[in-house]
């Protein structure tokens, strides 16, 4: 039996885990190809207009797979950490797919919900095993394997590698021999790791001589630490990743400039971006830019803005920190964000 996995959304976070599990049980996997214009267009035409770009894209990948495989793997991740949620759209993803795309093969739904506690982790796999009709002892072993694979994957990302490079060794990033600085990209993995919809931003920046770090590269413990001081517990896991890494970079030690890559219509990004922008304005005023992408974003306009941002960064690095492009004296601002 061929299982299709759409190369979108949580693929970039959990693929090693899924792959190991399913392969171990003897199923073969077909992944949809990297995003192309056609896939995106199909997704846009199938999905409701008001959805965000990544969700539309997911529809496109599912549509691509639907005639080529026997079942399609659709994750329903309610929560990936106790007491936290991810976006409402992830929770309703299987429903959105079912109601928007016709003639689907059966869906293999991965119900992952750790809201009540980490102990529930295995339930999702047991459930998968049941749907696939494999014995529970098999599932147990596959589960162990999958978890350890995932663990390694996450550790590799935290050590500074690009998820895309781990999944596809061809895309490996080496540290630049000579780099002008480091740029932090705050973004969901499924945006920045999709070279098509992210307009290949990471590569473009690297071509200009800057090293790139993404949110997932900031180790989780550090991210969590940074969120301790929030007046109210932030309950979106993805929001935590973005904000936690953002706050780390705002301290100014690790990166020289920050880019917030968000998708049009994303509710979570809009909140996190707002907080980071305000914190930055109260603190070091690092060069900061927001790039919002949607299905109509033009390549040309995007490139121009990116170049302008990098130019500004260069001036600022060259002239030291004794003047600020915003017209404020950088040193007089308050040193605490709260």
């Amino acid at each position: 039996m061929n299982i299709g996995i759409p190369r979108a959304l949580l693929y970039f976070d959990y693929f090693p885990m899924w792959q190991t599990f399913l392969n171990y049980l003897g199923f073969s996997i077909i992944i949809s190809p990297p995003t192309t214009k056609d896939i995106l267009n199909i997704g846009v035409s199938l999905c409701v207009d008001d959805a965000c770009l990544p969700v539309k894209l997911f529809h496109g990948h599912v549509a691509y797979l639907k005639e080529k495989v026997d079942v399609i793997f659709v994750p329903r991740l309610v929560s990936v950490a106790p007491g936290e949620f991810i976006c409402p759209k992830f929770i309703g993803l299987p429903e959105m797919i079912k109601n928007s795309i016709e003639n689907l093969p059966p869906l293999l739904i991965f119900n992952y919900n750790l809201y009540k506690g980490i102990r529930d982790k295995k339930d999702a796999f047991d459930d998968l095993g049941r749907q696939l009709g494999v014995s529970s002892s098999h599932v147990d072993r596959a589960y162990k394997e999958a978890i350890s694979r995932q663990y390694i994957y996450e550790a590799m990302i935290e050590s500074g590698q690009n998820p895309l490079a781990i999944l596809h060794p061809k895309e490996k990033w080496d540290k630049l021999d000579y780099s002008k600085g480091v740029i932090g990209i705050i973004a969901h993995p499924y945006l920045v790791c999709d070279r098509y919809i992210s307009m290949d931003i990471a590569k473009k920046i690297r071509d200009k001589g800057y090293d790139v770090r993404i949110s997932a590269n900031v180790p989780q413990t550090i991210r969590e630490n940074n969120l301790e001081t929030m007046p109210k517990r932030l309950f979106w896991s993805y929001g935590r990743n973005l904000l936690g890494s953002g706050i780390e970079w705002l301290k100014g030690n690790e990166v020289d400039g920050i880019i917030f890559l968000s998708s049009f219509g994303c509710g979570i990004d809009s909140f996190i971006e707002e907080l980071i922008r305000r914190y930055n304005a109260r603190q070091l005023r690092l060069p900061y830019a927001v790039f919002t992408i949607d299905e109509h974003s033009g390549q040309a306009g995007f490139d121009t803005r990116l170049e302008a941002f990098l130019d500004m960064l260069e001036w600022r690095c060259k002239d030291g920190y004794n003047f600020s492009p915003y017209g404020y004296d950088v040193y007089s601002s308050k040193s605490s964000i709260r």
Binding site: G83, E84, F85, I86, C87, P88, I91, M230, P231, K232, R233, L234, F235, W236, G239, G267, I268, F271, E274, L275, R278, A281
Partner: peptide
Amino acid sequence: SGSCGPCRFGYYGVVQKEILRD
């Protein structure tokens, strides 16, 4: 009133506080 997810409503207060402060 607040809530704790999954929707944005639960985080209104925090964001609004920052906005008001600025």
